[in-house]
Design a binder for these strands. Structure first.
Lengths: 228, 228
DNA sequence: ACGATATGTGTACGCCATCCACAAGCACGA
DNA sequence: TCGTGCTTGTGGATGGCGTACACATATCGT
């Protein structure tokens, strides 16, 4: 009876359907709660109702799973940024809307870091392989990169004539560094204790100064004139 | 013979002398090579020539040891910054020397991040206790904090009349964020692949823009006038 | 000289990643 | 239709890790 026809219950669970996806989801959930250190093969498989070794059919190692979670976290950050961008009302004033979109990117970035610290930390955690020394960069460049979104906001500054193209690259690094650095300092740095309202206020002032650093004197003059 | 007077060799290793320090040194060495994940109680005790549990007489947990290593790494970063500051030639021009010291802090910060990525990552890694949610901030504030050094550089901007005091706090956040963020992006972010020479060039331009963001229009005018 | 205290040892448990051999389901061709 | 072979999950084992508990040994104050 048990030999020729296996019990249906056992057979139904033997094939999971989409274990790869289930493991990834479990990993994301773990990262959300406890950062990269919390995503463990055994717990992920446990949540998927499967034996630990089953994971190896879909991910070469724990680090491979973590890498997938990292990509997902990065994508989630990008979505959060796009959310903020979508909130913007369209305006005819190119300069104003360029500034607005930079602010949207910044606040989306920060909001994600604050509301999903585990995922944020995971997104920027270091793969095991890189811990020691430099490693040849892999392809990557999957769609919807947060930094690309920030770059797009800078494009609008260039289009609006606020930022001369030859200063574009330096401006990009400044904006990346400022926003990312602020998020890091707020997440686990000396700014951790600040209240959320104060944090957004700091972001506002920081972006003011970034703009002041970005905008070429002539551009700034033009804007000031236009504002009056 | 073996009862009344124990053999000297055994007695000499039973008391380690300064195991606490030895464990910390081992931990620092491990962090240097492999980042925070590499500092493990068992390996540290192994290097100190002692059994794993001995560590618990000096550190309450692995995380406690890691915390000590973090503090040491932070102090090492501060030393690297002071090194760069010490290289500066003294000048009468207050404005010029303020700018120079900001640059020194920035390049010290970045140089440390590049030459000691393991320690840098360890310095800013997150204690286990904080991984999930916010936690009441402990005292900390030990001497020689990198961020205090950056603050001191900004003091000189204020003293030189380049930065109005009421903009001081925002300026501090901008400078922190920009420098720290750039270091992060270079260590494990999208700027990892850049050559060191290009990285320092980016730092230069970034600091230019930070200054431009810092300096009040009147101050800038004064400086420009003075330069001519 | 002796007892309290600090420091290191031994043994053990549970969690983890990972390796190997095996079994169960499925897909496709003889 | 019945294999035959590939994919996916299982079982069992190994070694590393943090950590708890009981024990041994050195040192120090009285």
């Amino acid at each position: 009876m048990s030999k020729t026809t296996a019990p249906a219950a056992q057979r139904s669970t033997y094939r999971h359907g989409d274990l790869q996806r289930a493991l990834l989801d479990a990993g994301i959930d773990l990262a959300r709660g406890g950062g990269p250190a919390a995503v463990t093969l055994r717990e992920a498989t446990r949540r998927a109702g499967v034996v630990p070794n089953a994971a190896y059919r879909h991910y070469a190692s724990r680090d491979a799973l973590l890498q997938a979670v990292r990509r997902a976290a990065l994508a989630a950050l990008a979505v959060a940024i796009e959310d903020q961008l979508a909130r913007l009302r369209t305006t005819a004033d190119a300069a104003a809307s360029a500034r607005a979109s930079l602010r949207a990117v910044g606040s989306g970035y920060l909001k994600f870091a604050r509301t999903e610290p585990g995922l944020f930390r995971t997104a920027f955690s270091v793969p095991d392989a890189l811990q020691g020394a430099a490693v040849a960069e892999k392809a990557g460049a999957s769609g919807l990169n947060p930094f690309q979104l920030l770059g797009a906001a800078l494009d609008r500054f260039v289009d609006a004539g606020l930022l001369p193209p030859q200063r574009r690259l330096g401006a990009e690094y400044l904006a990346w560094s400022a926003v990312h650095g602020l998020a890091m300092l707020i997440i686990d740095g000396p700014l951790r204790a600040m209240s959320p309202s104060q944090q957004t206020l700091v972001l506002q002032r920081l972006l003011d100064m970034v703009e002041q650093g970005l905008v070429t004197p002539e551009g700034a003059a033009a804007v000031t004139a236009g504002r009056k």
